[in-house]
Amino acid sequence: MQQDEIYGQVVSAIGAVVGTTRPITAETNILQDLSLDSVAVMDFIMQIETQFDTIIPLNRIAEIETVGDLVRILSASVQAA
């Protein structure tokens, strides 16, 4: 799966969770800009893992601040599979 394709799917998944019409970019900060707390982010990532049939180890979540970070880590894990 191409990174662009993953990015598109992540953006629409975020839209479904936060129900926002705000523009989401690669620089969007998941915690601050989307008003998600840390638990909601963990749950969202679990949902993304299911959607992409992959695993993002919990110890890597600290690296994820922006939508771009998530897409980058997700792309790596999807390709590794």
Binding site: M46, D53, I55, A81
Partner: peptide
Amino acid sequence: GAQVTRFRHNDPEDLRRRLRRL
């Protein structure tokens, strides 16, 4: 310091999927 994977609360099927991935 282990690799940590969460599975959906009380969901053995989700656990099964994740163990298969691993």
